[in-house]
């Protein structure tokens, strides 16, 4: 089973994400990056499936040169090779532009299963995987909290409003995993060393057959008009229980008209 994992590499956890008032985009240049934990779950799920059913896992990602560290981390986890869409022209792509680029890159290799996170931890639009599946002409099985493959079939437990649905389809298919589906492995020293020798294919939009006006800010359908801070919220109130705590909380709830 050939597995492609689409994983986003995002500003690291130590970085406070800022929006650039000029470009109205997230500040990514010069910022430390890491593999999104949500994407790490997808990588982990891919590795587990390939360990069970054979086949190689390929990571496909898009981003500026700062994301290489995240690609190496995925490779260190055990991913066989990586594809990096690296092109200044793709900056400012909206969800559909991103999906088009990823779809074109995925089509360059054989695949049975595409794994994605449900949403990235930085911008969480949560629709790229659905667009990607449609562009690839394969069904999307989303919000998976458990994935099992059996022969040419794939079955998931899909989160639902009141429990979960057992959903199945034939391969090839796309599965978007929920965060918390697994605990991503920590790269071992051997893996880190091996990752240095693994191949990272780099593509531009032109390599993928997409014109400059189809992708990036030019091709984006969604335009951000303004960015701003929402009105500040007041600090919370702490009630220390000195025998009267319950009463004070009840008074407070009554005061804000909750009860």
């Amino acid at each position: 089973m050939n597995i492609v994992v689409c994983g986003k590499i995002i500003p690291a956890s130590t970085v406070t994400i800022e929006l650039d008032p000029n470009t109205k985009r997230m500040v990514r240049k010069g910022v430390t990056h890491e593999l999104d934990p949500a994407a790490a779950s997808a990588v982990e799920e891919g590795l587990r499936l390939s360990e069970k059913h054979g086949g190689a896992v390929t990571l496909v990602t898009m981003g500026i040169s700062e994301v290489t560290i995240g690609i190496r981390n995925a490779l260190a986890m055990g991913v066989a090779s990586a594809v990096h869409i690296l092109d200044d022209a793709v900056a400012g792509s909206d969800t559909l532009g991103t999906a088009k680029l990823l779809a074109a890159a995925i089509k360059k290799q054989p695949f049975d299963l595409v794994l994605c996170a449900t949403e990235s931890s930085d911008s969480y639009s949560g629709i790229v995987h659905g667009q990607l599946a449609q562009l690839l002409g394969i069904p999307a099985l989303t919000f998976a909290k458990e994935v099992t493959a059996d022969g040419g079939r794939i079955s998931i437990h899909r989160q639902s409003e009141n429990g979960y649905d057992v959903v199945e389809s034939t391969l090839p298919a796309l599965v978007a995993v929920s965060s918390g589906i697994n605990e991503p492995r920590y790269p071992q020293l051997k893996g880190i060393m091996a990752a240095k020798k693994k191949e990272i294919k780099v593509y531009t939009a032109a390599d993928l057959g997409l014109a400059a006006d189809q992708v990036g800010e030019k091709g984006a359908r969604e335009k951000v008009l303004t960015i701003g801070r929402p009105p500040k919220r007041e600090a919370g109130k702490v009630v220390t229980d000195e025998g009267e705590g319950g009463k004070q909380i009840a008074d407070f709830l009554a005061e804000i008209k909750v009860i």
């Binding site: 629709i127 995987h129 667009q131």
Partner: peptide, 21 residues
């Protein structure tokens, strides 16, 4: 769950944008 999947699919099908959230 259903809404997000539907909008994602429609936006690729109709080649139009979509705004989340």
């Amino acid at each position: 769950y259903a809404g997000r999947d539907l909008v994602a699919n429609l936006s690729a099908r109709l080649d139009c944008g979509a705004i989340s959230d």
